[in-house]
Design a protein around this nucleic acid. Structure first.
Length: 116
DNA sequence: TGATTGACTATGA
DNA sequence: TTCATAGCCAATC
């Protein structure tokens, strides 16, 4: 697997941010992208997560789309693994969507401060 | 090399 | 309010 030099940095940053997500909290692809200064590259965050499976400590289940919808649950091996993991962290999932998403929402820009 | 796709989001009808 | 379309940018075919 080879990435463009700048891309490696971007992907690494994505993983770093995801690792910082506290247990029992979730964030969105767009929020991460925005935090990294790539507000319009939310899809790249998703793409980064695609490769996140190679890293054992990336809590990708804490990353959902802006509606709290578990759009990537099918990438966890089984379609129920993601909501099960979230459930064990105290996050209720109903109909593939996080209940009270706003309450659990963890925005890196807000929590970590804007990137200098 | 060029076209298509995707774990997204914002915007307009 | 719900549905459709347009940008985004790297990876894959």
């Amino acid at each position: 697997m080879k990435y463009a030099p700048e891309t490696v940095n971007f992907f690494e940053r994505v993983y770093e941010v995801v690792r910082l997500i506290p247990e029992g909290r979730v964030t969105s692809y767009g929020a991460i992208a925005r935090y990294l200064g790539a507000a319009r590259s939310s899809r790249m965050v998703g793409w980064a997560m695609n490769g996140a499976h190679k890293y054992p400590d990336i809590p990708a289940h804490r990353v959902v789309n802006r509606s709290g919808l578990l759009t990537g649950k099918m990438h966890f091996g089984s379609s129920f693994a993601m909501e099960q993991m979230l459930g064990e962290e105290g996050i209720k999932v109903e109909n593939d969507t996080i209940v009270h998403f706003k309450k659990y929402y963890w925005d890196p820009v807000t929590e970590l401060g804007e990137l200098e």
